[in-house]
Design a protein around this nucleic acid. Sequence first.
DNA 1: GTCTATAGAGTGATAGAC
DNA 2: GTCTATCACTCTATAGAC
Lengths: 187, 187
Amino acid sequence: MVRSVFEKSDAIGLVAEVFRELGYEGASMSEITARTKLSKGSLYHFFPGGKEEMAAEIMANIDAWFVTEMFRPLEEDEPRAAIARMWETTDSYFRSGRRICLIGAFALDETRDRFSGTIRGYFHRWIEALAGALIKAGLRGSEAKALAEEAVVGIQGALTLARALGDDTIFGRTLTRLKRGLESALE
Amino acid sequence: MVRSVFEKSDAIGLVAEVFRELGYEGASMSEITARTKLSKGSLYHFFPGGKEEMAAEIMANIDAWFVTEMFRPLEEDEPRAAIARMWETTDSYFRSGRRICLIGAFALDETRDRFSGTIRGYFHRWIEALAGALIKAGLRGSEAKALAEEAVVGIQGALTLARALGDDTIFGRTLTRLKRGLESALE
DNA sequence: GTCTATAGAGTGATAGAC
DNA sequence: GTCTATCACTCTATAGAC
């Protein structure tokens, strides 16, 4: 018998891509087993709570990644450098718009009610961390908050339109516009 | 026996709200019958093609509404007045951000593959109609296109964040910002 | 031997179609 | 309401690591 041994963290990444492509309700266990090549035994071993636990762990995993790679740098590092890295991180994480934001997608339907704390926390911290960096870089609080909100709104909207239009250029174009908006406010 | 007689157009509106709340995969036939009070018999009478036909007709219906109320006015009426009305129509249609964009939500998961033509056409026509009005109002084509895209991106992003954050103010704030951006470009 | 990870048939419930 | 397919999930068996 051939055995492939996975770590739980591998399973989280594989299952995450299925949820990202199919949505929470659209990702059936049989599609998850088919696409990940993980058996039900493995999946229920890693996630005894089933689909809901899978999604919760995936979201926690995404949130933790953003905290490490983006939010904490914005909160703690030199603000202008951290903001510059934020744009790069955003473009590479979302693969120039070809990959959607799972947390944003879950926010749109009733899936939100299962995970509302994580969803709200993720977007709230992103906006607050960016606004904080803008304040440290010299902006007034009200302007910083407005620009941070505008940036996160723009990123989410561009992800929706990139997929809706099948347009590989709109995400990069939007990031460039948002980046310039912040830079001109900081001059 | 009490009978409520529905027209197909009534059924479309009722079922649309269920899809909007639950998503395509999340909206099971039993939830649709429970929430609309329409029997399975009525639903299959109106939509012999089942769920997929329901969703297709709902999207066509939404698209037609936007063509009449927003896209054709932008294309044919006095541009500044049509743009001013677009902001009002957008705010009231999406109920100040409490109602999501069904077509945008369908774009995010594999549901998109079923309806990609309608989804693409809707957003493409919105951007083109707004850009056309901006050109008629005096802007250069490249600037008009960029601002139109920015507006539709911002509307979609604000809808996502309004639901994600449970924030009733972000949608109105975003519309005001986008409106001012267009107005200052037109001065 | 014990233990964990895996495989996948089997469960009752519920899906969408009619 | 009735149909069959598929749903999320359970459970037994067993492979390999120790």
